[in-house]
Design a protein around this nucleic acid. Sequence first.
DNA 1: CCAAAAGTGTTAGACATACACCCATGT
DNA 2: ACATGGGTGTATGTCTAACACTTTTGG
Lengths: 233, 233
Amino acid sequence: MHNYPEPSILVAIDCIIFGFDGKDIKLLLIKRNFEPEKGKWSLMGGFLDKEEGLSEGASRILYNLTGLKDIYVEQLETFGCVVRDPVQRTVSVVFFALIQIEDHDTEAVKSHNASWISLECRPRLIFDHEEMVRLAIEHLKYKAALHPIGFELLPERFTIPQLQKLYEAIYNIPIDRRNFSRKLLSTGLLIDTGQKNNNGATKKATLYRLDSIRYKEKFHSFWNFMPDSMKQA
Amino acid sequence: MHNYPEPSILVAIDCIIFGFDGKDIKLLLIKRNFEPEKGKWSLMGGFLDKEEGLSEGASRILYNLTGLKDIYVEQLETFGCVVRDPVQRTVSVVFFALIQIEDHDTEAVKSHNASWISLECRPRLIFDHEEMVRLAIEHLKYKAALHPIGFELLPERFTIPQLQKLYEAIYNIPIDRRNFSRKLLSTGLLIDTGQKNNNGATKKATLYRLDSIRYKEKFHSFWNFMPDSMKQA
DNA sequence: CCAAAAGTGTTAGACATACACCCATGT
DNA sequence: ACATGGGTGTATGTCTAACACTTTTGG
């Protein structure tokens, strides 16, 4: 009973990669040019290497696809239904990544046949990847309400209206500009860079950057950017 | 690259089981009477069966040890360090369970050489089980602040002071009786059973039970039982 | 009758919301 | 000049924290 059995189950990693283009939350998905399920859409994934840990594996896969290191990655959940992969019993550890969409290596993405797809128009995904994505979206909503992870989706220097648009995209609700701004500045996490952005068609907005030290200290403090009306959902 | 490799990694399950005895939060741990690490303390675990999913596996292991079904179980995180098990590369999916300590099957627990150990006096655990427990405690604190999972650790009928002692044990802080009681009753989740408890040495407290229907509906609403002073930590 | 624990009430302050208003910029 | 979007101010109501007081029970 307590002996070690022969390994018979594969261990895989799948990555859910969120980005924000200033308007919509997008997912980095691949159109598979390999078997199984060739031609269909799926998350980026791979099998766990014998000589790597789970987070190393996730970093490797994310690096291969995006060319990025040091991005925000969290382990989300492990999926292990007996029938989830019809070819071979596989347990998949799902990771959740947030990246700044401008920074990614477009060549690497192209070579993997991947594209940024907005959440609403995403195609049907293979296996249980659809369920993984649903869980990740829930997690994003849940976590962004309490922790300042929203910053991970924006460039280093960003404006408050940008951040607001991000939160509006996550929760799909309008947020009051003035209250949002005040709530945000009161955290003391934003540093005024003194610069203004120039892409806006009207008044230039102040560019802030994150106070990384305080950000790490305060990460576990419970924020609440959701209006109370959403708390019921 | 995209071929299926030979399985070479084992998939295991470990369970962190919390209980509450009215005073302290306790963990159900086993003193191993089998190899490896015979004689040392560890979490209850086992290998994933070829024909079961992850949550089925966790339920099986929990049932074997406690004789209980339908208990509160959540998948916590998967541990996959290359060196975590010295005998054989093993990835372990850790589950988090809350049980009513009075309900468990004492025979089954004894036969597995298991005991309820309070968090403070727990022995050193094997492998990375120590880290798993630390994560689970964090998760308990985090989750209990927002969701009413505290109820899962109490008997079906319980008093508000009991629940308060539970929260005080989780966060290791004193809580104001009056504010706690009002906050709790205002949720509408408690049903007055009309009964009073009799074990108290002084005034008898009202026994409540959970409104299960509302409980399920409201589960995802964000509660906050932690006083604001704790929000910084 | 007293001690100890349960239950109820009250008040001041903090916070969030919902607004109105002013400022800067490109056309 | 004016439309568009960014930034600041303020009042109102709700919620919380910090209190005092009463009630019930066992010894």
